[in-house]
Design a protein around this nucleic acid. Structure first.
Lengths: 148, 148
DNA sequence: TAAAATTCGTTGCAAATGAAACGATGTCAA
DNA sequence: TTGACATCGTTTCATTTGCAACGAATTTTA
């Protein structure tokens, strides 16, 4: 008994598509990290940031990595407890907390990264079209959403 | 003091990109629905499904819409309470629950859909490249992830 | 300066989440 | 039939989440 419903296709609706895809990827990645290293996705992102960017404070990471402030804070505690990073208060601005990977942290990252790359490769394999194009479109879309 | 770290670019890493994009889109959409209609994303998906597919049971929707079983169940209760749908036990298999939009439910969907389309249009506008290509790539990727 | 406002990271708390257990129902095989 | 097993939607419960409040530190304003 459809009355005056406008036409609509959920399967082709971008926000829906992206949400589903993100859910799948993130679930797969999470179980990969979790079972092999006991690492969450948030922790993984923080580790990568410390290793590959000069985001060194909670705030830097929070922005760069799009994680909640509290979530970063909690994940950092976990990583610190397991000896993967250390905290150090900035002497010039004592509100800031500088994070630094330990030896163990760097070793861990060195193990995680190949896993992550392999994961992406598998996705690229399943994806029939040109994967590089996909990536650049994602970059483009990410940019479009963050500044406008 | 980077030792033997392999090279890696988080910003160009697909699972990360998709996750960030999904977060942004979903946050924007959620606030749009929430403030205008008091509807969550899960509820929105269920409504659309009832309106535009012949998924009529909790199970159908759960699969089609990639939502947790419990989440669907809860959202359905909320929608029922507000009079947007009704439940009816399948007489042939009394475990199954058939959901049906009420008049109010259809009216709501008819109001929500243009909002959703407008939202997507804005995204498409900001996105410089060909949006149709993006959508078809997402479809492709979604497919690749679900069957492999 | 002094006072007000802002920013930093943490924490408290209520709500959301998801895995697992559950009762009810249905199917299958002996 | 009967008993074991599977499936449906709900509910329970422990965990995760994110907002907002917080203390500490800094910057801005008057």
């Amino acid at each position: 008994m459809k009355h005056d419903l406008p036409s609509f296709d959920l399967e082709g609706y971008l926000p829906y598509q992206v949400s589903v895809i993100a859910g799948q990827l993130s679930a797969n990645l999470a179980s990969l990290y979790q079972e092999k290293f006991g690492i969450t996705v948030a922790e993984w992102r923080i580790l990568v940031n410390l290793a590959y960017s000069n985001s060194k404070t909670v705030r830097d990471i929070q922005q760069r990595v799009h994680l909640d402030k509290a979530k970063v804070s909690r994940a950092v505690v976990g990583l610190e407890d397991r000896g993967y990073l250390t905290k150090k208060i900035d002497p010039d601005d004592r509100r800031l907390l500088h994070l630094e990977l330990t030896e163990e942290g760097e070793t861990l990252v060195a193990e995680l990264v190949p896993l992550a790359q392999e994961f992406q490769s598998k996705v690229a394999e399943k994806f029939q079209d040109d994967f590089a194009t996909l990536q650049s479109q994602m970059t483009q879309l990410m940019k479009a959403l963050s500044d406008g």
